[in-house]
Computed example of a mutant assay.
Amino acid sequence: MIQPNETFDGTFPFAPHFSEAPGFRMHYVDEGPRDGNVVLCLHGEPTWGYLFRHLIATLRPTHRVVVPDHMGFGKSATPRDRSYWLQDHIDNLERFVLALDLRDITLVMHDFGGPAGMGLAARHPDRIRRIVSTNGPAPFGQADLAERWAANALVSPWFQWILKAESEGRLEKVLEELGYNILSTLKLNGFENHALINDTWLRAYGSPFATPAECAGAIGWAKGFATGAHRIEVPDEAAQRAIQSKPALAIWGEADHTLHAEHFLPSFSTLFPHAAVHRLPGAGHYCLEDAPEEISALILQFLQRT
């Protein structure tokens, strides 16, 4: 686990906060005015709040930006007596949000942060004000969801690898060394801005996974997909109507090798038919690394406009 005050040579200069509400020590960033509109940023695999550092800096003068690290990621603890399925992360997020009493939330979701955030929205639609997807699926009762996930898995090298590795009993062995193979994992999923790569950047993304025991979160995301252990939260009719009425925005790096735009953007547009969709040529799965200034500007404009 990363030390609480680690800033990675000043690239992550945000005060650490911790909550015990989810039943473990969850780290989060909480920047900006306490009475500002809440922007809740949710990371995925295998990243942490560091992914949102540019967006935090852009929004904190006017908005309250809250960025938790999921269990087993970033500066949060990796308890050994917990499971790491999607539903566990939704439970953790719900306890965290209720403990801080966050309301009028704009969700900014990346990767597995999408299903986690939409799970929160299904349980507490009254707390959600806007939805922003940044290369993050937004599953919320769409009829074609299973077919789109299956079709995407057929053309995604990462999903193909985890299915094969799990079937051969190699998944844990490889992902337990994530601290050493973090760059190849990011590149496999779609990371294009190679100018960012230096020792500090590699340390920021690799150090949460320094030992096999600290890789439980990353293993859980992958293994849950491979074994079917993840359970997507299904909204009731009232939640469906409430969330569909919210302003929404999709931003998608088209060089994403893992979550392909042709499979996930139609699903997003089915849920939010009037939402703007911005496709970013040359940006990959980790679009917030590949195009941080453009994405930060798009989200700020969306917040001001809605």
Rank of each mutant, 00 (worst) to 15 (best):
E6A: 11
D9T: 05
T11C: 09
F12Q: 03
H17C: 14
E20Q: 15
R25K: 15
E45T: 15
W48H: 09
Y50A: 08
A57L: 14
T62G: 13
H63K: 10
T78G: 04
D81N: 13
W85M: 08
L86M: 10
H89A: 03
F96E: 01
V97T: 00
A99W: 09
M109C: 06
A121T: 09
R123I: 06
R130T: 07
A138P: 00
Q142I: 06
D144E: 14
A151E: 12
A151L: 11
L154M: 15
P157E: 02
L163W: 04
G169D: 02
R170D: 13
K173W: 12
I182Y: 01
K187N: 12
L188G: 13
F191K: 00
L196C: 04
L196F: 08
L202D: 00
A210S: 13
T211Y: 07
T227V: 02
A239Y: 08
Q240N: 13
A250E: 11
I251W: 03
E254C: 11
F264G: 01
L271Q: 08
P273F: 07
A276H: 15
P281L: 05
H285K: 04
E289K: 03
E289R: 07
A291Q: 11
P292W: 05
I295T: 12
L298D: 07
Q301E: 15
Q301L: 12
F302M: 03
L303P: 06
Q304Y: 04
